[in-house]
Design a protein around this nucleic acid. Structure first.
Lengths: 330, 330
DNA sequence: CTGAAAGCGCTTACAG
DNA sequence: CTGAAAGCGCTTACAG
């Protein structure tokens, strides 16, 4: 049975309030009684209960991290970033997988507030405005990644997606490519649209025609990338480069080239997005747009912590950096 | 300001105890007042505070998951397994990275009990006996993965490591190899020793000599695998197969072969352990011992939940299955 | 079938 | 510099 404040107080011969004061080192306390209390705490291995404290202070020193799937190679590093700084600031974090399912996102968010988290970081996959409007606020700051909501209590961290897409396509053009297709991914959410827009921007800027048949959507998984690239390359053999929505699609495209006997990058250059751990390990190693994932996680918690410290302030979006990594595939 | 029990009681015109009863549906309640209470709950969007409840019941509906590093490709799937079943049973989980550091493991465990978790699952990297002896017990069940402690309140889930090693080496021998080296990994903890032991077992069983110079240790990372394999293969060109402690080392060994102009598997077969996502994606795709990671996570929480349900019972270790996946490298 | 009281382990004003 | 009282939002015996 763990020791409580009362046990410590009794042992030290003081009131519980005095013990509380030395634990939270607040208020003036005579050095003598302080030492006495400290000794009692050590003797009893006393550790204050965060749940009792949370009930009165309304601060639990916990935050929630909601992402679609920790198994998606994009997320472990992000999670590491948030966990590291959260821990160093005395917070513990609940990890939750939403599977990009609005109903689950909502349920998770509610369970998180039931548990009294101080704030949450979420990578949303859907339109969260109603939920955020209901849940977020001065009592529950929420930082949303890659989507902007102008709502009280919500702040955002954005990835420079469009710029990443531009870097990728510019690289291709610099290599002399003019027939560049895009594996565009699936949803019509901002991050997806931004990549396609970056692609269009750059083609237009270089006076290259935009061929809608060369922009092909689909679930961003490897097999789908393979199929899409196969279809594209068979139908339009003049294509010499492919920019993919993410690395998984790009990997599929490499397989498609191999199946068609097209060398990468000589016959068809391929470029991905995200720079997941796999990207550098396949052959040919993938040229891709690197997202600083650890940094992204770090930025997100830091922002959350700021919101916690200054509940009434509003914050401008943070933009997380992006970088082209040239390896062998393009 | 969220609604409390008292608000609901007031609105429904009953005592808080009655509301509590319908919330936890315990005790007999007349259907009429039940409906009235339910209506008030819905009106007010009432959600019971888990922290208040935790203070009295000593159950927080949270558990801790402590692993060395979520960024290690072995862990995301494990985490997914525990998160999925935990969530389906109404638990939220704290994720913590220990970095295989005893001091951090201890600190994390303590912070977890401060937060009032109902139990924890830990992948230890060190000798945890003193800590477990102090912390674990009927009040705090702990399931330990891959290490056995015969302590009250601790239960274990083991991976069939030795069997996995045996499967790997037997496969090699079946392919006609007799000169088989081992990249043995680093620590001298059980999981490492078991792999080496499996390797020795099989060689001995087939009357093959065990050459200690062919068993070479080192941090289980890719670069180190490359270096070790390079050294091994240069010094002992008669080696025709390498069994690696884990996939990362195996990947490094493949690189070494490429550097030496040895074809894999023709000139040197290579086999790994774990079957991380990378394993199937490199070339040549890695033959390896698959650990059912999601399943492992699932088994661990299920065991924890059992311990929670039956605090005084003792449980025998669970053995998580392992399977040889033959791809191209061996 | 329903309620009043006590208490979970702390902190927050308020006194002295 | 130190303490007694009230209360955070619930549940647990105990009555009726």
């Amino acid at each position: 049975m763990p020791a409580k404040l009362r046990d410590v107080a009794q042992k030290a011969g003081v009131s519980i309030k005095t013990v509380s004061r030395v634990v939270n080192n607040q208020g003036e306390i005579s050095e003598a009684t302080r030492q006495r209390v400290l000794a009692a705490i050590a003797d009893l291995h006393y550790r204050p209960s965060k749940v009792a404290r949370a009930l009165v202070t309304q601060r639990s020193d916990t935050v929630g991290l909601v992402l679609s799937d920790i198994t998606n190679p994009f997320f472990p590093e992000v999670a590491r970033g948030v966990l590291d700084v959260a821990e160093s600031c005395g917070y513990n974090v609940f990890l939750c997988n939403s599977d990009g399912n609005l109903e689950r996102e909502t349920r998770i968010l509610e369970s998180l507030v039931d548990h009294g988290v101080d704030g949450v970081i979420i990578f949303p996959t859907f339109e969260l405005e109603p939920v955020l409007r209901r849940l977020a606020g001065p009592h529950l700051p929420i930082v949303v990644v890659n989507r902007q909501y102008d709502l009280p209590g919500v702040s955002t961290v954005m990835i420079q997606t469009r710029r990443g897409a531009q870097l990728a396509v510019e690289h291709l053009i610099r290599q002399g490519h003019t027939a560049i297709a895009m594996l565009a991914g699936q949803s019509h959410e901002v991050p997806q649209l931004e990549r396609v827009q970056g692609y269009r921007d750059v083609l237009a800027a270089h006076g290259l025609p935009i061929r809608e048949e060369w922009i092909i959507g689909g679930v961003p998984v490897r097999n789908r990338g393979r199929e899409s690239a196969l279809a594209l390359l068979s139908r339009y053999p003049e294509i010499t480069a492919i920019f993919a929505y993410n690395d998984l699609l790009a990997l599929g495209a490499i397989e498609a080239c191999q199946a068609l006997g097209r060398r990468v990058p000589e016959d068809c250059a391929i470029i991905g997005f995200d720079d997941i751990p796999l990207a550098g390990a396949v052959c040919p190693p993938l040229t891709t747009v690197h997202v600083h994932k650890y940094e992204l996680g770090r930025l997100a918690v830091e922002r959350l912590l700021q919101m916690l410290a200054q509940p009434d302030q509003t914050f401008v979006p943070i933009w997380a950096d992006v970088e082209l990594i040239v390896r062998a595939s393009a």
